[in-house]
C-alpha cells in the first residue's frame, strides 16, 4: 500500500522526489499490511512533513454494507487496459457489490490526462536536487580524477544509471531560469487541480477503484529501450500519488497466467476504509498468491 503522504516518516529514506516519496507496507495479507502500518505511521519529530493518524483498525469480516465505491471511467475504460485485466477488476467489483457495497460511476478526466506529464516535471525536478549530494566526497562511490571537478563528473557518471541521469537532466531543465513558471510552476498548479478533482469525487464516494496497472507484468527488460512505454505503466497510480492520497493494491485474479492488481484509493487518512474493503475482497475472492505451477 501507499499510505497518505505524511503519515509515515521519511527519515532515513534515500530521497528521490520528496513531495511524492512515501514509505508503505508490503505484506501477504491486507490484515498484515494494516498491522505493519499501525506500527510505522504517525508523527515523527525528525520529519516535519509528518502528521498524526487516526487509530488503525485491523480489518475483520466481509460485510461492505454502506460502503460507496466510485468507478472512474477514465481509469477503467482507457485504451491501454488489457481485456484480461479489465475483466478481473470487473469481477472483483461485482463481488464487492454482492458484499453490500454500492457502486457508481464517476469521472476524473483531468487527473488522468495531466497526472503523468505533471509527475514527470515534479519528480525529476526534485530528484535533480536530491541527487546532487552524491558527489563522491563524503560517502559512497568515488572515482578519482585529475582534479575535484573531474572526480565529481566521473563519480556521478559511474554511479548513476540511465534513468536517474535522464531525470536529473529533465529536472534541471524544468527548474532553469525562464522555464520554471512554464514547467515546475505550472505542474504545481495542475497538482492542486488534481487534488480538487479527487476531493469532489470523494464527496459522493468513500473510495474509488480501478486496475493498479493497465497490463500484467511485462517481461524483464521488455521496455528498457522505450522509456515512455515504461512510464505509461504508472498511468493509473500517478494521479492519486500527485494528490497525496492513499492507495491499496489487492491481487484480484489472473490474466494470461499473471496476477492482476485491484487498486483502491481513498481520501487523505482513509486507510481504515481501504483496509476494510481490501480485506473483505481478499477473503471473498479466494485469490491464491502461489502461482499454479508451484502449487
Amino acid at each position: 500500500m501507499r499510505p497518505t503522504y505524511g503519515t509515515v516518516s521519511r527519515y532515513g529514506v534515500v530521497a528521490f522526489a520528496s513531495s511524492l516519496d512515501q514509505v508503505g507496507p508490503v505484506a501477504r495479507t491486507v490484515r498484515d499490511c494494516a498491522f505493519l502500518y499501525s506500527v510505522i505511521s504517525g508523527k515523527d519529530p525528525c520529519d516535519s512533513t509528518t502528521v498524526d493518524v487516526p487509530p488503525v483498525e485491523l480489518p475483520d469480516g466481509i460485510d461492505l454494507k454502506g460502503v460507496r465505491i466510485g468507478v472512474p471511467k477514465e481509469m477503467n475504460e482507457t485504451e491501454g487496459i488489457e481485456p484480461g485485466v479489465a475483466a478481473a477488476v470487473q469481477a472483483a467489483l461485482a463481488k464487492a457489490e454482492e458484499l453490500g457495497a454500492e457502486l457508481g460511476e464517476c469521472s476524473l478526466p483531468r487527473s488522468v490526462e495531466y497526472g503523468m506529464p505533471c509527475y514527470y516535471l515534479v519528480a525529476p525536478a526534485e530528484a535533480s536536487s536530491n541527487l546532487a549530494r552524491y558527489d563522491g566526497v563524503r560517502y559512497g562511490l568515488r572515482v578519482e580524477g585529475r582534479d575535484r571537478l573531474e572526480m565529481y563528473e566521473k563519480t556521478r557518471d559511474a554511479g548513476f544509471g540511465d534513468e536517474p541521469k535522464r531525470r536529473i537532466m529533465l529536472g534541471t531543465y524544468a527548474l532553469s531560469a525562464g522555464y520554471y513558471e512554464a514547467y515546475y510552476g505550472q505542474a504545481q498548479k495542475v497538482r492542486t487541480l488534481i487534488k480538487r478533482e479527487h476531493d469532489e469525487v470523494f464527496e459522493r464516494f468513500d473510495l474509488i477503484a480501478s486496475p493498479t496497472s493497465p497490463t500484467v507484468a511485462f517481461a524483464l527488460g521488455a521496455k528498457t529501450a522505450d522509456p515512455i512505454a515504461m512510464y505509461l505503466s504508472d498511468v493509473l497510480t500517478i494521479p492519486s500519488c500527485m494528490a497525496g492520497l492513499p492507495g491499496l493494491n489487492v491481487p484480484c485474479g489472473l490474466s494470461e497466467g499473471l496476477p492482476v492488481g485491484l487498486q483502491l484509493i481513498g481520501p487523505q487518512r482513509s486507510e481504515n476504509v481501504l483496509f476494510r474493503v481490501g480485506h473483505a475482497l481478499e477473503q471473498s475472492l479466494g485469490f491464491d498468491p502461489v502461482p499454479e505451477r508451484l502449487r
Binding site: T49, E126, S129, T172, L175, S176
Partner: peptide, 12 residues
C-alpha cells in the same frame, strides 16, 4: 549562477 529555486518539499 542559475539557482533553480523551488519550494523546499522537506519542510511545511
Amino acid at each position: 549562477d542559475d539557482y533553480r529555486y523551488f519550494p523546499e518539499p522537506d519542510l511545511v
